[in-house]
């Protein structure tokens, strides 16, 4: 009995040692040489592996930073300047500060603003819907409302507002990784400067149809009239393909355009509530109140 136990122990021990030696040999033979700084950089990364930087994941980004030898072309949108400073410290490199960005939904085609012309009955996917037809409203360019952006967001920063049928970006959670921008088949979502005190002005429409057609499809559409461009003292607004665009690098947030827009397509967010003004010059339609669009603190003037 005892001998059996002893033999078992001996046999197992010998086997264990043998295998350990084999493992050691294999490990040394197939060892992969890697720059230890990649690990260090990876440690300071957010670790979301969202792909917002353009690389497959945080490690790939770290590798690229180490190999490139500078940080000019690499930026982690999720971690922002803080993380980039840490990365720069690890590698002993310089980093340029970037203004924080945020995803902005450029469509205000709420259920009230944009009457439905048919009912979509396929799978709930904007990509499928966009490939099939122009959408269930008269607007060719607007939000399809199936929430591909919501599904793409890894940070839970986008949700669909059931009242408007439009996505809403949570300013706190959005990291500007750009996943939603890539997911949107209508290219409605844009990454814009977050702005001082989160204040921004943007055109909430991408409809490229002529004014009358755009207006017919949606009462909150940009009709490309160009009044905003004339009003802008900083040349920040251009009207191309019947739709205005505000260059956020030139915009100084004076909000002159907001007052000019006849359809209320230009939105300003996070500005303090203005002193009571006279009623809007032109009420769009009785059924189209200034809908909450962008965020909880969103305000809109006509």
């Amino acid at each position: 009995m005892t001998t059996t136990i002893i033999w078992t122990i001996v046999a197992i021990t010998v086997l264990g040692v043998l295998l350990a030696v084999v493992l050691y040999l294999v490990a040394t033979k197939f060892k992969v040489e890697e720059d230890p700084r990649i690990d260090e950089v990876e440690k300071v990364m957010p670790g979301a592996n969202c792909g917002g930087c353009g690389f497959a994941g945080c490690r790939a980004f770290a590798q690229s930073c180490v190999e490139a030898g500078n940080l000019d072309n690499n930026f982690c949108p999720v971690g922002g300047n803080d993380v980039m400073k840490k990365v720069a410290a690890v590698l002993g490199l310089e980093v340029k500060e970037k203004a924080p960005m945020i995803a902005v939904v450029r469509c205000n085609g709420t259920c009230a603003n944009r009457p439905r012309t048919n009912d979509y009955d396929g799978v709930r996917s904007c990509k499928v819907k966009a490939a099939l037809y122009s959408g269930d409203t008269g607007c060719l360019h607007g939000c399809l409302g199936c929430g591909d952006c919501v599904a793409a967001c890894q940070f839970g920063a986008i949700s669909m507002d059931p009242a408007t049928g439009l996505p809403v970006v949570d300013e706190e959670k959005c990291t500007a990784c750009g996943a939603c921008v890539r997911a949107c088949p209508k290219r409605i979502i844009e990454l814009r400067n977050k702005g001082p005190k989160n204040r921004r002005v943007f055109v909430s429409c991408v409809n490229m149809e002529k004014g009358a057609a755009a207006r017919k499809a949606c009462s909150a559409a940009c009709i490309g009239c160009g009044k905003c461009a004339k009003a802008c003292p900083f040349d920040a607004i251009t009207v191309e393909h019947n739709v205005a665009y505000i260059d956020f690098n030139k915009c100084r947030l004076c909000r002159k355009c907001v007052a000019e827009c006849p359809t209320g397509a230009i939105h300003d967010v996070n500005f303090p509530t203005p002193a009571p003004k006279p009623e809007p010059k032109e009420a769009p339609k009785p059924a189209a109140p200034a809908a909450e669009v962008k965020s909880t603190t969103d305000k809109k003037e006509e």
Binding site: N118, D119, Y120
Partner: peptide
């Protein structure tokens, strides 16, 4: 009434 639209 509004017609349904879906892929085939």
């Amino acid at each position: 009434n509004r017609l349904l639209v879906s892929p085939s």
